[in-house]
Simulated assay, not measured.
Amino acid sequence: MSAPDDVTLPGSRIGIRDLPKISLHDHLDGGLRPQTIIELAEPLGIELPAATAPELAAWFAEKSDSGSLVEYLKTFDLTIAVMQTAEGLTRVAREFVEDLADDGVIYGELRWAPEQHLSRGLTLDETVEAVQRGIDEATDSVRAAGGWVRAGQLVSAMRHLDRGTEIAQLALRHRDRGVVGFDIAGPEAGFPASRLSEAFDLLARACFPATVHAGEADGVESIREALVDGHALRLGHGVRIAEDITIERADDESTFVSLGRVAQWVKDRGIALETSPSSNLQTGAIAAWGDTLADHPFDLLYQLGFRVTVNTDNRLMSATSLTRELALLAETFGYGMDDLEAFQLNAAEVAFLPLEDREELVDRIRDGFGRA
């Protein structure tokens, strides 16, 4: 699977990189610059598997392309290790948002798990504050240079650990200071959203939005629990909702599609699917349908009217950007500018922001695509 870093679609005057984009599913610990890892690791005494930034980038790409979510997640041991100080967290967050802006992203949600960043003495609140400093520094510098970007934190609890309620309370403490939503991450199979039902109930009573990783490493029942027990307004990946879709072909070659109860619920209520095409291939999330992007159920879901969005998941591990993901989809499924605009509008409409701010994003997207 290959695509240029940027393409200009037929009938357009500008490349995909210059179009306004929304990034909803992008992990902070999956988007570090390789050179930054090297520079942060040295004073902490962390041994690296490669000495130069290009070699380290290649190492991440190789280790991440295993077809297993469990193996994929192991690469995060290294990135998380260099994100254990306030200075490190601030720098990573600042560069993360700067890289989003360089890719044409106008709004990004940075998801990460504060409980994984306490080994060198930081408190949970201090980690959130350090990340917010980086976000603020980046947005200020981008705007000072004539650009425009906005970003918010999605605080994640690790679904296989037992700090869900504590992390939900952390998110609520910072809801007016940069945290826009809640998530659960980590191994999906065997660790359903119901394990953290107390945390989700707390958030629902406080009218605070949640997205849940579901339908990536587990199937339809995991999605059902994300919706019922997790009160999820969006589904992290969610691609295995396609397991609840039946396609039948009659003798006259007519095609009939029927949706199961969960799929129908997700479609009818416009619950967004935070798909990440390259990552979904790497982790085996679409293994039931094949092992190439053409096998990804993205186009099926799009054609059936599901609210699909396009994301990167982990830019370092997948050696990708949002521009590249969109270029790959356009190349594979023959999408044009109207399709790419639809994906961005989908994302803007479900961003964890007040309605007026989402309407501003919609206006910026329409203006940007209108100039293309």
Rank of each mutant, 00 (worst) to 15 (best):
L110F: 10
W148T: 14
W59Y: 04
I38S: 12
L19N: 01
Q84K: 04
E243L: 14
L316D: 09
L322S: 12
F191N: 10
L233V: 06
D363V: 15
R269N: 13
R261V: 11
P20Q: 12
D26M: 02
Y302F: 14
A193C: 08
G284S: 07
I16C: 01
A263P: 00
L170W: 02
E341N: 06
A81P: 05
E356S: 15
R307Y: 00
R315L: 07
R249D: 01
P49R: 05
Q303W: 06
G370I: 01
S279E: 07
E42Y: 04
E137D: 15
D18A: 09
K74H: 04
E109Y: 13
E47T: 15
T90I: 02
V155F: 06
R364W: 08
E198K: 12
I22Q: 03
A3G: 10
A242F: 13
G219P: 09
D291W: 06
W59G: 15
R307F: 04
A41W: 01
D77M: 00
S68N: 02
R307H: 15
L281N: 06
H231K: 10
I46E: 13
G368Q: 08
R224P: 14
A130K: 08
G368C: 14
Q344H: 08
G186F: 00
H237V: 08
A263M: 05
I167F: 10
Y335S: 01
A263F: 11
A214V: 11
V220H: 12
R240E: 07
L353S: 07
L361Y: 03
T275L: 13
F76G: 00
D26R: 11
A206M: 03
Q282I: 01
W148V: 14
A287N: 05
A193P: 03
P277F: 06
R269F: 09
L322I: 15
A226R: 00
G104H: 02
I247F: 09
F76H: 02
K267Y: 03
P209R: 12
L328C: 01
L300V: 07
I184Q: 12
S276W: 02
L40G: 09
R133Y: 02
I38H: 07
T312M: 05
D65P: 00
P277Q: 11
P209V: 11
I106M: 09
H174I: 04
G305S: 06
A206C: 03
V128T: 10
D102N: 12
R17D: 03
L56I: 13
D99H: 09
D295T: 06
K74Y: 02
I22H: 04
D29K: 04
G152Y: 08
